[in-house]
Amino acid sequence: MMAQGKAVKDIMVDVFSFPHIPYWFSIKQAIGIIKVSLLSAKKYPEPMAILVFDEKYNLLGTLGLKDILKGLEPKFLKPNSKSQLPGADDSELSVLWDTLFNKESKEAAERPVSDVMAPAKFFVEPNDPLTKAAYLMVLHDLVLLPVLEEKKKFIGLVRMVEIFDELSGAVLTP
């Protein structure tokens, strides 16, 4: 089947492939879950992320490794620092590095995950074309895109790896 003819439902993955947590869990609890459920178990799902839900099992957002590091170290939220740019002076970088992840990070880890997650603002329907999912993911730099049935029931997720696999096939086809 041509990629253009495929719908989101053909490539979506099971939501239970990813750990779930409610929004009031702390960043520290989320780290514990990633360590125990994924890293120790040598599970490396693509992308490595946790799904964050509200009290009624509505998806609120996703929590990736990058979101957690940003939440622990506010300096990561300031990309203007020259020392964080590739090719910057190494000594400056080492000074920055030595001050990272200090006591403040431990305090920051007590914050709820809702403070640092990437909010789930964009959705697709199961019968939407793959191109729509690809467009939303690229435009908004999303690692996962939720699939909702009748704009309400959360039934699956679209990942970039499947989108890439399907759409790039067209380029290789003679």
């Binding site: 239970f16 750990p19 779930h20 947590i21 409610p22 869990f25 609890q29 514990g32 879950i33 125990v36 459920s37 994924l38 178990a41 599970k43 839900f53 509200d54 009290e55 009624k56 099992y57």
Partner: peptide, 27 residues
Amino acid sequence: ILAQTVMMPTDDLDLKLNVPKDNHIIY
């Protein structure tokens, strides 16, 4: 009903339910 959602086991919940730590739990 204050919550009806899904979570992963934290603290010693895995032991209390006798399930692996990567199992999803209805809360």
